[in-house]
């Protein structure tokens, strides 16, 4: 028995929803970034699954997944760097402590 595209898209939707939950609820900045990573993983699964059934010869989805991974890696690198820089200032990694710009 074989699996269709919808199953993979549902799997990616579950992963993305879990990542969204973490990104909203977590109060530690590092855990927030880890949730973003979860969302990025869901996106690449989705791109590859769509590639497999829609453009297998052109491989468009594979190239987009490659670019998405590189950009997500850049995002995580910058995000973790900002966390370290903010930690130096506030001696904390809690989202609730970064209120300097709050009006």
């Amino acid at each position: 028995m074989s699996v269709g595209l919808e199953a993979f898209m549902l799997l990616a939707a579950v992963l993305f929803a879990l990542g969204l939950y973490g990104a909203i609820s977590k109060k530690s900045t590092i855990q927030m970034l880890m949730s973003f990573e979860l969302m990025a993983i869901a996106i690449s699964i989705n791109l590859i699954a769509i590639n497999r059934w829609v453009t297998p010869r052109e491989m468009t989805g594979q190239y987009f997944a490659l670019f998405e991974m590189a950009l997500a890696a850049a995002e995580i690198a910058i995000g973790l760097t900002l966390i370290v820089a903010l930690y130096r200032r506030a001696q904390s990694e809690e989202v609730d402590d970064f209120t300097e710009l709050k009006g």
């Binding site: 993979f8 799997l11 699964i45 590859i48 699954a49 590639n51 497999r52 594979q62 997944a65 991974m69």
Partner: peptide, 10 residues
Amino acid sequence: IIWFLGAEFI
């Protein structure tokens, strides 16, 4: 999962 979908490089 991605390997299983045939995208080994990714």
